[in-house]
Design a protein around this nucleic acid. Structure first.
Lengths: 219, 219
DNA sequence: TTAATATCCTAAACGGTGTTCAGAACTAGT
DNA sequence: ACTAGTTCTGAACACCGTTTAGGATATTAA
């Protein structure tokens, strides 16, 4: 009676094969230059066969984006809460920028690509995105209490602002929009440092952000 | 003997027609969904005819990007230097964010699209980009001297940092990567405010950026 | 006026894309 | 052995950017 089980296993194996092939092609050549036909060739199936496993090309990369988020969060700082709370804060967001350099294709897929906008509509489909955000907010809260930021600074606002700052630098670099000789790392560093210093000066006290949808925090 | 002149005029008219058609399609449907064939159909020429005027599709949008830069700079603040130098600073960069909202397709072409990377390699081909940057740096310098920022703050660094900050907010919104209920305007506002306050706190004094290639300033 | 020349445009094709669909082939249960 | 169901393929559809050969047209020269 384990026939169905075997079938399911085989199905899943093929689906994994498709994703593996897609990832290999995609991390080296980028989303745009990976075609269904090339994926099919690599797994030695016909192009049409893929549509028995994924309803569209976008869905394949939707699944790959999920991998990307997992990668971003698992390679995060290993809870190395040092003595300097500001340094903790810095590291937390510098990791985001570093990720955009070490995994540019994943980053583009997750945060840049406009042909896969379903990602943003289904943020919460990635349960761990919410978890991870909550985790970062907790760390920010902790760093704040340890004196990194003025007492009462809303951690959610800190999260959004610092992420936006490094995101700006990351995308300018990734999209090749820096000035000819400009140092992307330096730009990211200065921008992040400026934002942190702005928060230390109490910028988030004067104008903060409503925490929009945050199901983890019902107070 | 005015034959050649008429010919040239006619050629230019057709080239303009191509750009007009391309722009109309592109501001409503976006770069990705505008094809040579659709442009051709609109101007009632065959697709191949276009290649007599532009060597590739990218070159058409390269020309359109130029329009975008002109649009961004000409719609800029009309030298309205008020009494509040910080407000001047704010307005200078808020305009960039507003542009990303009013002309999202132009913005994407100019600052986001990775399929037209020649833009960044040829920044200086757009003479007025350099001019405009110089213009903004001068205004920043002026605002600094009027007390917006600490004395000695390098205006070039201010330019890069504030642009990066609003760029982050603009791209997050444009790429549909905000949290489900998040207010993009609020995020942009807070991020910009935070960055300005960081600079006021002297962030650019501690760590600044080398002005990379800046042919206007030989000192 | 006619012949030569240069220009412009088109039809067709090339090789690519995502996706669909009829049917072949194989498997599982009766 | 036969039916039912699943899975894969080959071929096609409708696109895409781009190239090429050649026809039409307009200008110039004889």
């Amino acid at each position: 009676m384990g026939v169905k089980e075997r079938h399911d296993r085989e199905r899943e194996a093929v689906a994994r094969g498709i994703l593996d092939a897609a990832r290999e092609l995609f991390v080296t050549h980028g989303y745009q230059h990976v075609s269904i036909r090339k994926i099919a060739e690599r797994i030695e199936y016909s192009p049409a066969a893929i549509y028995g496993y994924f309803p569209s090309k976008d869905d394949i990369f939707f699944a790959l984006a999920e991998e990307g988020f997992r990668l971003l969060f698992t390679t995060g700082s290993p809870v190395s809460e040092g003595t300097d709370p500001i340094e903790d804060l810095r590291r937390l967001f510098w990791h985001y920028y570093e990720f955009s350099k070490t995994h540019p294709e994943y980053f583009a897929l997750m945060f840049l690509d406009r042909s896969v906008p379903r990602i943003s509509r289904d943020w919460d489909r990635f349960g761990f995105v919410g978890e991870m955000k909550h985790d970062m907010v907790v760390r920010i809260q902790d760093a704040t209490e340890r004196g990194a930021l003025p007492r009462g600074t809303p951690p959610h606002t800190v999260f959004r602002v610092l992420l936006t700052a490094v995101h700006g630098a990351a995308t300018l670099r990734l999209c090749d929009r820096l000035a000819p000789g400009e140092d992307g790392d330096a730009l990211a560093r200065v921008t992040l440092e400026t934002a942190i210093q702005g928060l230390r000066a109490g910028a988030a006290l004067n104008c903060s952000l409503s925490p929009c949808i945050d199901p983890d925090n019902e107070e």
